[in-house]
Amino acid sequence: MGTIKLYKGKDRRIRAGHLWIFEGEIERAHEAAPGDIADVVNHQGSFLGKAMVSGSDTLKARILTRKDVPIDEAFFAKAIENCLEYRRKVAGGATCYRLVNSEGDLLPGLTVDVYEDVFVLQATTYGMDMRKHMLAGLVAELLRTEKAYERDDMPVRRYERLESVQGFLRGEFDTNVRMKENGAVMDIDVSTGQKTGYYLDQRENRAAAAQLSSGLQVLDAFCYNGSFGIQAGINGAASIHFMDMSEPAIEKARQNAKLNGLEDISRFDAVNAFDELSRLAKEGGLYDMVMLDPPPFTRNKEAIEGAIRGYKEINLRGIKLTKPGGYLVTSSCSQHIGMELFKEVVLNAAADAGRYLQLVEARSQAKDHTRLLSMPETDYLKFLIFRVV
């Protein structure tokens, strides 16, 4: 068993509940190779927790538990079982959900998403990658399925000196999955779709927006596979305009709209949504509900100013396209843009548009995308519904 000893005063974050240990906090690491489990102690040798050693040059280890217990297969089996027990309580009978949410579930580096009888596993750390077949076996036994796919094609793996890989972990099967969510039916591909195949973190937010959509003319900008607009449609929207710059995404949205019997009230445009929103606003196009779910404008602190400008501009265009008494549905998945800052950005956009906003709801990611209070990094999604007056 290796040991990681921290410098004096460098244990405060760990004691407060953060899970990451950085190179500059370590006084000495003894027999702590990448992937190993190590005891973490303070400068006096007092036990702080068990950590998994990283392959990174800067983020050297991640805490798994504060308890002095063996980190073995039984440990991971119990942890994943606890994750499933929680999802059964909060996912509302959903058949597609996040089972394991990395740091949010005290299993840093491990993500598991479930799509009907298929699960997709991501291992972003050296230690979880070493154990991925064992972990897949535990999940398969718990879920009683042999359909497991690996989506370890994320750039973040480079920091752990891990290659980009994907493929079958257990069994071989059609990677196209027909999933159900909030009453809608969607076809996704776990081998090629965004993230692990679909944006599960917006499940509850899609339902919240759809509840307001009956009888409305809806614009779903940055629609990807059409999930927001489709759920508005099955809840009674009068029309849906799907917009995305990706031709494959628009084609998938078209297929999913047809699958839900919405093709007659749907319009599809493969265009640059930023430019098209501006053009529509100039032409006086108006909608009862404008949905904005753009990709992240920043993945680091250095790009925050540019991200603020981007979010303000896109929300300004969205507000201009919303009829008086209509709804603006807007979100940000940029972790470095907090909720209050995001509200301020949208408020400034409304001021420039000469409109008032009534806050209907302020939400975050779905409850199965667990947020660890001691780790603000796990709280990344901001979702706002406004009535525009």
Rank of each mutant, 00 (worst) to 15 (best):
L19A: 09
W20S: 08
W20Q: 11
W20R: 12
I21Y: 01
F22E: 00
F22S: 03
E23V: 11
E23R: 15
G24T: 07
G24E: 12
G24N: 13
E25M: 13
E25V: 10
E25T: 07
I26N: 03
E27F: 08
E27V: 06
E27T: 06
R28E: 14
R28P: 11
A29K: 07
A29Q: 12
A29T: 10
H30E: 14
E31L: 09
E31H: 11
A32S: 15
A32K: 00
A33I: 06
A33N: 14
P34W: 01
P34E: 10
G35A: 09
G35C: 07
G35E: 03
D36R: 13
D36T: 14
D36I: 06
I37W: 02
A38C: 12
A38E: 04
A38P: 10
D39C: 09
D39L: 11
V40H: 01
V40A: 10
V40I: 13
V40M: 07
V40W: 00
V41T: 08
V41C: 06
N42Q: 08
N42D: 15
N42T: 08
Q44I: 06
Q44D: 10
Q44W: 09
Q44C: 04
Q44E: 13
G45L: 14
G45C: 09
G45M: 15
S46W: 09
S46L: 11
L48K: 09
L48H: 07
L48I: 10
G49C: 07
G49N: 12
G49P: 05
G49W: 00
K50C: 03
A51T: 05
M52G: 06
M52S: 13
V53C: 08
V53Y: 01
V53S: 03
S54K: 01
S54N: 14
S56R: 13
S56N: 15
T58G: 10
T58R: 15
T58K: 15
T58D: 15
T58H: 14
L59H: 05
L59V: 14
L59E: 12
L59D: 04
L59A: 15
K60G: 03
A61P: 05
A61I: 04
A61Y: 02
R62T: 03
I63W: 02
I63C: 01
I63Y: 00
I63N: 00
I63D: 01
L64P: 03
L64R: 03
T65D: 12
T65V: 12
T65W: 10
R66E: 11
R66I: 02
K67R: 12
K67F: 07
K67C: 07
K67W: 08
K67M: 13
D68T: 12
P70T: 11
I71G: 07
I71L: 08
D72S: 09
D72R: 11
D72Y: 06
A74H: 12
A74W: 04
F75I: 06
F75R: 05
A77M: 08
A77H: 14
K78V: 11
K78D: 14
A79G: 10
A79R: 14
A79Q: 14
A79C: 14
I80S: 02
I80E: 00
I80G: 00
I80A: 01
I80R: 00
I80T: 02
E81A: 07
N82T: 09
N82G: 13
N82A: 15
C83A: 09
C83K: 01
L84S: 06
L84R: 06
E85T: 04
E85S: 04
E85M: 03
E85V: 02
E85F: 04
E85C: 03
R87S: 05
R87W: 02
R87Q: 08
